[in-house]
Design a protein around this nucleic acid. Sequence first.
DNA 1: TATAAATAGGATAAAATTATCCGAAATAAA
DNA 2: TTTATTTCGGATAATTTTATCCTATTTATA
Lengths: 144, 144
Amino acid sequence: MFSKACEYGIKASIFIAINSYEGKRVSPKEIAKEINSPQAFTAKILQALVRHKVINSVKGAYGGFEINKNELKYINLSQIVKAIDGDNIYNGCGLGLDKCDENHPCPVHEKFITVRDELKHMLENTSLEELALDIKSGASFLKA
Amino acid sequence: MFSKACEYGIKASIFIAINSYEGKRVSPKEIAKEINSPQAFTAKILQALVRHKVINSVKGAYGGFEINKNELKYINLSQIVKAIDGDNIYNGCGLGLDKCDENHPCPVHEKFITVRDELKHMLENTSLEELALDIKSGASFLKA
DNA sequence: TATAAATAGGATAAAATTATCCGAAATAAA
DNA sequence: TTTATTTCGGATAATTTTATCCTATTTATA
Ligand code: FES
Ligand code: FES
C-alpha cells in the first residue's frame, strides 16, 4: 500500500507531534528508536518532510525536528503520503495504465476508484493531532 | 497498491479469459502484446498463476494458456492478487508493524482496516467473467 | 519416431527501493 | 570566537523488484 519510506514518515511525524505538544524537539536517533526504523534512512525522510513543509527542523545545538503546536490539527495523513509517495495513489490507475481516465478506463476502474476515493477521504480526514493523542493515551502503538 | 507483477497478472488473466470463451489458447507473446507488458517477465507471472491453479497451461504444439470456461465466473481478483502479491494486503499492518493486531493496533489501524476490508470485498466480488465481458463490449481497455 | 511448437525454469542483468556512511553547514552556548 | 551539537546532502552499498536470456522439457502432428 504505502512504501516503507512513507510508513516511517507517518510514524515519525506522529512521534514528533507528541513531543511538539510538550515543546520538545526530537532527533533522528530518538525517532528511529521510537518507531523502530533505520536511523539514517529515517533522517532522509525527515529531510523530505521538511522540504515539503510538513514538519520543521532547527539546526545546530539544541535543535531537532518539531511541528508548530497550533498546526497539529490541520496536518493530515494526506500531506505526508503525498510528500513521500507522491499522488499516484490518488490519481494513478489501479492496473498501471498511463493515466486513470474515465473515458478510457481499465477493467477495474469503476470498482477501484470507489476504494481509492475512500482511502483518499480517510487520509484527508485523519489529523496528526488525533493520531498523536491515541498514542499518548495508550490506545495505539508506534512499534511492536 | 499492487505490484507490477500483479497488475500484469490481472490483465493477462482477463485476456486469457476472453480467449477461453472462444476456446482459444494464447501464448505469452500474444498476451504481452495485448496488455503491453514485457514478455519474458509476463511468462514468469503466468507460471505462478498456473502453479496457483488460477489458469491452466498446455505444453507443446498447439498449447498455450487457458481457463476452464465454466470456472470463469468463479475466479475473482482476490485469487490472482493472493497468488502473486500474497495476502499482506489483506492481513498486513498499514504502517508496517509485524502484524496487524486489534489488541496492539498501530495509529491508523481502525481507519485502515475499513478501507482494507472494502478493498478485500471488492477483490472477492469481482469475477474474471465480468471483467472479460467489459473488455469484449468495449467498455474497458487493457492498454493505453 | 522425428520434428516443430510451446511452456518451464534456471541464471543473469537492470532498475528501483531501502539503507549506510561521512563530511559540510548551521547554530546555541561557553 | 571557539566548541559542541545537530541537520543537510552527496556518495555509496545492499536488497528487492522488474526484466531478459537461454536451455530443458513436454506434446501434437507429420
Ligand atoms: S483507468 Fe484504471 S483505475 Fe481508472
Ligand atoms: S495494526 Fe496497523 S493496520 Fe492494524
